[in-house]
């Protein structure tokens, strides 16, 4: 298994995501794209930009902080700062694309789905992730995956770095 993916690799993964998403949503009048803080937010922004270039119209944007919806708050102790959730668009009735960087146990996505249900009822919710590293603890799967990693040891971290926040695009698989 490779443990490092560079700028070019990440670029191709995102292109692949964009193509698949654009094809599926071509018939929809509008779509809302919501990223999970913090890397999912950046990734969602990039997907939205490229989807626009692919002719997808009326893209609504939102950012979700799922801290307040986690089911493991009491197990992991003090957490970093809770950031505001920003969903100013009406998410009712239109398809919604949820974006995160890494899909692992599925608990973040479960929390995000709970949070979204407090904001409205999209016609459908789809999930796009840059990396699926396996290790699910809940029956949750992604609809769009940039990179599927198999056999990542549980103790390892899949670290996604993005240009906007980290200076360069890179995926590292490393021991914690």
């Amino acid at each position: 298994m490779r443990n490092q993916y560079d700028e070019g690799d990440v670029g191709r993964m995102i292109d692949h995501l964009v193509t698949a998403i654009a094809t599926d949503f071509a018939g929809d009048r509008s779509i809302n794209i919501v990223g999970i803080r913090t890397r999912g937010e950046t990734l969602a922004e990039r997907l939205a930009q490229q989807l626009k270039q692919h002719g997808v119209k009326n893209i609504g944007r939102g950012v979700l902080d799922i801290t307040l919806y986690r089911d493991d708050l009491s197990e992991i102790g003090p957490r970093p700062l809770v950031r505001p959730t920003q969903i100013s668009v009406d998410i009712n009735g239109a398809p919604l694309l949820l974006v995160d960087d890494v899909l692992f146990t599925g608990r973040s996505i479960r929390a995000a789905l709970d949070a979204l249900s407090d904001f409205g009822r999209p016609s459908a919710i789809r999930l796009a992730v840059l990396v699926d590293r396996g290790g699910r603890e809940l029956p949750i799967q992604a609809d769009y995956v940039g990179l599927t990693l198999k056999d990542v040891p549980r103790g390892h971290r899949v670290n996604v770095k993005l240009r906007e926040t980290d200076g360069r695009d890179e995926i590292l698989v490393e021991p914690k």
Partner: peptide, 22 residues
Amino acid sequence: FVLDTADSFKEVSTRSIKKVPA
């Protein structure tokens, strides 16, 4: 840190469902 955290909770009170399960 408390003031910054309060920013996020202020947002909760602007939602139509003003409740989180924290």
